[in-house]
Design a binder for these strands. Structure first.
Lengths: 334, 334
DNA sequence: CTGAAAGCGCTAACAA
DNA sequence: TTGTTAGCGCTTTCAG
């Protein structure tokens, strides 16, 4: 393995000091154009690639952003990775990925955060999940700039991008109630990108404001995995009936639709179903899902942009960024 | 922002030299137990987290693996991220993620590889895609240990994990031909995790070996995106008819099934469809997809394990690891 | 405009 | 068993 070419090699070959080479690669404008040219030419000729690790040590900046997310959120995160990757690349930040497993059993969140600390990432993006509060506490303790996706929060060096689950749920519920559909239920998985508590609150408030009694047990908890949620729902519909099913994620909605169809329940005639996120599940499903469109790619892009703003001490006019959502009417509602 | 505690602080507080602290955190067994205890206690008390960047500079090892993949493959890669993340975590490697966009237009592969070089990742994992050859060439040039997923190759410091697309295609085609289904077509998207050329070759050979003429234009190219491939196929079925449709990925298979159903083509009675990968699309789809199950999670895990073997100079008994696949019969075939 | 030199935080000989 | 010291490759004052 031939030795890597260093800044010293370049300096020597270009007959300047390493300080000058450093100035050139960092775009300092005090270098005489002729010298710059010579250095640049040498860099190219020697195929010199500055060692980011050394630079990181010298500047105590790694231009690296750590992204921490639970594996069960892949489906959601997937579409966000595009925004994260593109934006990171554009702004010249590396993205280092830390996954946590299903229940945080195998690798406690403490360990993951410890890795983040050790990696000296400049900032971190967190995703809403079961132990988001704990994560945020740890991050705060180490004072790492952070942005949280899917959970509304802001603090010193902490911003967030989120969808207002409460108002989504409120609006939908209100509308269904007005149509006379009062037997509404909410099917939710344990992990989600949107705040499930807020969603539930939205439903509750809509019932309260409409002076209609909230059905008992209107919340149905299912698995994150379709392979499990689908049979769960199939069994559930043996003994239950609803006018409307709201969900926290398209995947759950598809499980509902398929389980219902297997029971001879007509969707949307007998039962209406609404998904959430507008992922490919929604279009692939038959009938195609009525759902809430959330600009997931943008959420990722904004998260990264926001984080870099914190890192560069740019002014931030909105520390808690709500994402616009739209109701997409397809075939699982009337 | 309070200053980070360094190895010097620990050394001073524990009243030893920094070399001893270094020995303790690196598990050297020449340290006297009593001293070790004292150091350990101090580390804990001061909440010292060794700076990986400094360590990287000193050892010229970053314990970081770069994962490079095109965004269009994320659907496939998604399930692999689990394996990659878990295994990386277990083996104590950081995973740094580089995405390339759709057509490699915005960010030429050269730039991405350049970032990988600069990051000084110890190794890199690459995914089969349009310009995999170019990627491999670049990686070779810089002699970075690599493992390629989805494309069979091996070389000095390069290994691969793949599925034998050719034999999958061959076996399936042969079987359908024997059932008298000779009007077979292959619907493929431009990017794929399995080698599409090999797949096509498998079909061709099966036809040749069966002494049946291969239908002209048996290959149908569609978009990577369901939103586009579905209408494409809908139009395609206006003028085309097949006994059997083979696909390179479940998503395309779902598009085929949905487009067919819209045309009143009965699946599987009039047309049989086979997916590939056995992703959640296959189970969610109605009728559920007959597909080829590929252990995607394991592919990710094996890729990382293989790479660490190269990095640690462990013996590698198989440089090109074929993944086992299984034919999953569901409802889109007879 | 350019060079010399002092770190950044850690590892790894080499001494003791 | 422990300490001393010379780097790892780069940035950044401070002189010149």
């Amino acid at each position: 393995m031939k030795k890597k070419v260093t800044i010293y090699d370049v300096a020597e070959a270009a007959d300047v000091s390493l300080a000058t080479v450093s100035r050139v690669i960092n775009g300092s404008n005090v270098v005489k154009p002729a010298t710059r040219e010579r250095v640049l030419e040498t860099i190219k000729r020697l195929d010199f690639k500055p060692n980011q690790i050394a630079r990181g040590l010298a500047t105590s900046k790694t231009t690296t952003i750590a992204v921490v997310f639970p594996q069960s959120l892949f489906g959601h995160v997937k579409d966000m990775i595009g925004g994260i990757g593109d934006t990171g690349r554009t702004l010249d930040f590396n993205i280092i990925m830390y996954t946590t497993d299903e229940l945080g059993l195998g690798n406690p969140i403490e360990e993951v955060i410890e890795k983040v600390i050790k990696s000296r990432a400049d900032g971190v993006v967190l995703f809403n999940n079961n132990c988001i509060d704990k994560e945020i506490d740890l991050i705060k303790k180490y004072r790492i700039p952070a942005v949280v996706v899917g959970y509304k929060i802001s603090d010193e060096d902490i911003c967030s991008v989120y969808v207002d689950a409460k108002s989504i749920a409120y609006d939908m519920t209100k509308q269904f109630i007005e149509q006379g559909k009062k037997n509404i239920c909410f099917v939710r998985a344990t992990q989600n990108l949107v705040d499930l508590n807020d969603f539930a609150k939205g439903i509750e408030e809509a019932f309260k404001d409409s002076d209609v009694t909230l059905p008992e047990d209107y919340i149905v908890d299912v698995s994150n995995h379709y392979e499990e949620s689908y049979p769960q729902l199939k069994e559930y519909f043996d003994t239950h009936k609803h006018d409307v099913v709201l969900t926290g994620y398209d995947k759950e909605a598809v499980a509902v639709v398929n389980a219902a169809i297997d029971h001879g329940i007509n969707v949307p005639e007998d039962m209406q179903v609404v998904g959430m996120m507008d992922t490919s599940y929604a279009t692939i499903c038959r009938p195609p899902l009525t759902t809430i469109h959330v600009p997931v790619y943008d959420m990722g892009a904004i998260a990264i942009r926001l984080l870099t703003k914190i890192l560069n001490h740019e002014e931030i006019d909105e520390a808690e960024v709500p994402m616009h959502y739209t109701f997409i009417k397809r075939d699982t509602t009337k």
